[in-house]
Structures are given as C-alpha cells and as structure tokens.
Design a protein around this nucleic acid. Structure first.
Lengths: 335, 335
DNA sequence: ATAATCCCCGTTATCGCTCACATGGCGATC
DNA sequence: GATCGCCATGTGAGCGATAACGGGGATTAT
C-alpha cells in the first residue's frame, strides 16, 4: 500500500503556509522571509518531500533532460564521449536520455531524433559520425537547441569536432620525418565522417612531401579488419609504415605483421588513433593520436546549455586539437 | 515564435470528437469505432500531434523511464551491459536515465539512487559491482521495482549475475588439465564483487586438485596493473600459468612476459576474462572467459518489467553461464 | 495623520493528460 | 412495445507543480 508521496500542499499545510510559498522556497525565490523559509525547509525534510519533476515539466515546458543520439556505445570513442557528456550534464543539473542507433540510415536517425523530441528533451546532442546523405537532421524543429558532435556541418547547427585532419597529419608527418616513403593507410568504414577526415589528413601530408603512392585499405574499426587489411597491404613489399585509423585496427595489424614475421618497428612502423588505455601496453607500445573526449563532451554541453538558456553563441564551430603520443611502434625507415 | 504544439483538444476539435476519445485512440482502448479511430488518427497526423509525456506521467504516476545506476562506463564490461540494457529497454518502450558514479562509497550510491527516484523512474537497474558495506541500497523504497546486476545479494531484491565462480573455475581447470601446478592469479580491485567471486573460483579449482600454493596479486583492471602484477609474479620461477581477472590486465601481462623474454604459451600460459573483441587478435591469441552481456541485460530487464507490471516473479536469482574461449595463449605446462 | 511603497504571502488559473462516471442510442429480449 | 444492457462517446475532476495577479501589513515619505 504505497500511499501517495507528499506534495507541495502537504508541505504547505505542515508548515502553515500556502503551497505557493513552498514553491517559492523550492525555486529559491527571494521574497520569502528567512523564518518561513526555514519552517518550510524543515517540513520538507520531515515529510521527506521530493518535487515531482513531471508536474514541473508539464507547467514549465522544460524537462531538465537532454537527449543524446549516438551510435554503438561499446566502441571506445562513442563510449568515452557519452561518458563525458553525461558527467558534464549532471554537473549542470541535466539528466540524459540516450538513444543508440543500430544502423545509420537516414530513417533511423530521424526516428531517433523524433523519439527524443517526443520525450520532451530540452536539447539535443547528436553524435553523428556518419554521413547520412543530404539534408541530415532536417526534422529538428528550429526551437530545439542542438549540438552536433563529430559530424558533418549541418547548416547553422553548432558543432564540436576533434580536428581529425590535423590528427592524421601529425601521425603521417611523424612517419615522414622518420624517412618513410610509402605509408599505407587502414581507414575506417567509408561512410564515417572521421574516416574521410583522416584519409584527407593522410593524403594531405603525403602530398606535402610529394609522396604520390597512396595505398589505402578500408577496415571497419575492428581488430579483425585491421588484421585482414594488413595482409592485403603486405602484398606491396615497399610499404614501410602503416597508419591505422584506430588502435583496434592497429592491434589487428600487429598480429598480421607478427605472423608475417615482420618486426615492428625495425621493418615496419605502425601508428594508431584513439590512444586506448591498453595501447601503451601492446608489444611494442603503440604510437597513436590522442583525442581529448572529456574536452569534447564538456565543450559540446557548454554550447548546448548556452543555447537552452538563450545566450548568444560566439563560436559555432569548435575544433579540439589532438596530440601525438610517440611510442615504440614507430622508428626510422629501414635501409 | 514557437507556438504551442497541438494538444489533445486540438486534435479532438479537428476531428469533431471529445478529447477523451482522442485519449482512447492513443491508448488503443477498444471501445472506439473504426470510423472515429481513423478520423482521429488522420487529424493527429495532419496536425503533427505528439503526446506530452510529462502530462501523462503526471496523471499516471508512471514515467516510462527506468533508472540505471552504473560505474565507469568506459570499461568494457559496464559499457556492454549498459548498451544491452538500453536496447532491451527500448524494445519494450522504456527510456533510460543513467547515473554513473565516480566513486563508490555508500553515500554516492545512495545519492545516485535518490536522484533517479526523484526523477520519477518506474524502476531501477543497479549495476553494483562493488561491495558498499552493510545495508546497501537501504534507501530504495519498497515500492520501486529494482534489479541488481552483478552485485551482492541485497535481501529480497532480484538479481542477475554471470556465474563468476564458474567462469574462474573453467579457466583454472583448463590450466590444470594442461598440467600446470602453480597458477598465479591477477585479481581486480579488492572491493569489487567480481574480484571476490573470481578469486573464489580460482581457489576452489586449485583446492579440488590439491594445489595449495596460491599466489595472488591484486590489480585494478587496467593493463598497467596487469603489467606490474606480472613482474611481481615472475619473482617466483615456479609459476607456469597466470589467470588474469580481465583481458586488459592479461594484455599488460603479455607485455611484462615479453620484456622478461618468457614465451607464451611455451614457457607460460596466460588466460584472461571478458573476451574483448580485440583479444582474439593479440599475439598470441588470448584464451579467455566469455560473458554474455547481451543476455544479462535482457534478463535483468525482463525481471524489472515483470515487477513493474506487477507480475509474480518466479526466480529471484538468475545466473548466466559463462563459457571458455580456448585460444593460443594456453598450452601444456613445460617439462 | 494620511498616502505611497515595498515586502510577503495567498488565491486562482493553467499545463495536457487519464480516470471515473454519466449519457444517448440501438438492438435484443420477453 | 417497454425494459434491459451494451457499445460508443462525452463531461467533469484532478494529478502537482508554476505563473500572474491581488492584497494586507509594516515602513517610509509627505
């Protein structure tokens, strides 16, 4: 027999004031004398009063919830991002309503967005690492504050991105500086935003040094795909360095190289992307690019909250700078 | 100028019925003629009507949201679990409100629970891999349906667990069957539930075979800690096999063994726990224990929904059976 | 002493929905 | 043909909070 939990009226009655005064205390309204405030707070404590969020949401039209649309959250990147966003959101008093997509066709993206909007979120964070075709996110009502993370530009929606091109350039230029001439790339799946940017950075760095041979094999972020891709790459004996678009694929590459009895870094240099906590403990320790997910999460939430609170936003495009962690898997080119 | 979105009354007016009829259509109530139903649905479509969840939650007292209390969701285990729960929840029409804990003292656990309850969740999934001291979760009102995942028994709260003891036994017995006599264990942090269970399974298996030497070093799930722990273990030259309590630590162990020039599995067998997607591509491929997180998530949600809907629950303790994935990192003991 | 001004607090309406109950119509029953 | 009963629909209340406005009492100004 769960009896009805105490409402404002119960608290009001218990402390001999009106429910409105209770509401004022709750919202830290100023025009309440210290004495009554204390009285009300005492009654709230005594009765174990908890405000009913649904009722508040109904009347204010604000749910104090932000919606996050994401993709496979078992992957290190999305998981870290989500975690960072959650932490930031909690700090500013927002709950999270997360929808994860299984596939990323246009329809499921729109469904996910619709679902979140129906749930009454105050704002939207879209972790959109894929290209979804033309007019993405067209069904977001203009009234819903939105931030896009790691996604393609979508009109005037603010976005936060790690500078993927720069990250790839850092990696490849490091290899070039070590004297490598033929640097293969294991990319992510074609329809990912990050994939394209990293390819672009890789190509750009090669072009800058007039290295025209660009051997590219696409993976799917998994270790298995890195393993397979590397076997493919090894058909060209001139390749002396591999830039994998993430650490998992680099790990798979390591296995393929080991099976082919090609020493890393003596005969082949290898570089990854993401800096998994484990990467430092691979054999050999993996040189990789570090993205500050924490920072991305924090920044995107700042941007979102600013919109929700109706503040003017100065920067619409925020780029986070990645850094290179140089470790043992890269060395001077052989010869 | 965001004008007010259409409400039931708008739909009612547009289709010439009462708001109550609209409500009935919305909730698939039977006593509505096909003709009016169609008419109402058409108006809803035309006006772009979306039910206001907050209003519904207010009057029904149900939010169609379940709360999840979890720990560091960047770890593979919790992340997978969370993902599975989210999928299952969505399938049955529930949203998720997740709170992640930074530390796991009793107070933050209770705060987290309180926070979720205040938010009006219909049920609670507590992923509680730690021992939190006595009377954990004591502040959960009896009226809030709850399921504990991977946690210690807490009175009459239903729980779903992977059989960690069995998992550890499988691992250790596999090593024993290969002739290993001295099998060291790298455990997780002491205050984790899983740590204790895996230690128990390890000890139990050793006892069964009358192996009395039990060298145990505690790690913290990280690759680094596995690396350090292994260096410690190697001080005893009689150890021929290591059972690490998760794959990340096993990966760290691999590095320490490589540095000590101890061949795996020729001189040392190594076994992990979790079966990370990457583990199959380590060098050598890692033998490990597989937990079906998907299943755990699905089962726990079933249990929760059953409670929410007031059904009788037959099983209060659900154990999921782990399996052993035998790969290249384990082999016959040397000599 | 009277008017003006604040400060505190109460009254009433409202958000969008569901629940409990009332009502009208039509066929079946005797 | 009057009674019953069921089906389809409407009416009114109320969920628990905030918003807008109104009003008494003490303080200050005139």
């Amino acid at each position: 027999m769960a009896k009805r939990p105490p409402s404002m009226f119960d608290v009001a009655q218990a402390s001999g004031v009106s429910h409105q005064t209770v509401s004022r205390v709750l919202n830290n309204h100023e025009s309440v004398s210290d004495k009554t405030r204390a009285k009300v707070l005492a009654s709230m404590e005594k009765l174990g009063y908890r405000p009913n969020l649904a009722a508040r949401a109904l009347v204010t039209g604000k749910s104090s919830t932000i919606g996050v649309l994401s993709y496979d959250t078992t992957l290190f990147g999305p998981a870290s991002m989500l975690h960072a966003i959650r932490e930031s959101a909690r700090d500013v008093g927002y709950a999270l309503n997360t929808v994860t997509l299984k596939s990323i066709d246009r329809e499921s993206v729109e469904n996910g967005i619709q679902e979140l909007i129906n749930a009454g979120v105050d704002g939207l964070v879209i972790i959109a690492p894929h290209y979804v075709g033309d007019k993405p996110f067209s069904n977001i009502p203009g009234s819903v504050p939105t931030v896009i993370v790691e996604g393609e530009d979508a009109g005037k929606i603010p976005s936060v991105n790690v500078d993927q091109i720069l990250g790839a350039q850092l990696a490849v230029e490091h290899l070039i500086s070590l004297g490598h001439k033929r640097i293969a790339h294991i990319s992510g799946p074609e329809n990912w935003f990050e994939t394209q940017k990293r390819i672009e950075g890789w190509k750009c760095a090669l072009d800058k040094s007039k290295l025209s041979t660009k051997s590219l094999v696409a993976g799917d972020w998994s270790a298995r795909s890195g393993y397979e891709a590397t076997k493919e790459i090894l058909k060209d004996p001139k390749v002396t360095a591999i830039f994998a678009a993430n650490d998992s694929m680099a790990l798979g590459a390591l296995k393929a190289l080991s099976e082919a009895k090609i020493a890393v870094p003596a005969k082949m240099s290898l570089i990854g992307f993401d800096n998994l906590p484990e990467s430092e403990f691979l054999v050999p320790e993996l040189t990789t690019v570090t993205q500050d997910f924490q920072e991305v999460g924090k920044r995107s939430l700042d941007l979102l909250i600013a919109q929700i609170e109706g503040k003017k936003i100065s920067t619409k495009r925020l780029a986070i700078t990645p850094t290179l962690a140089i470790r043992a898997s890269t060395a001077k080119a052989p010869h």
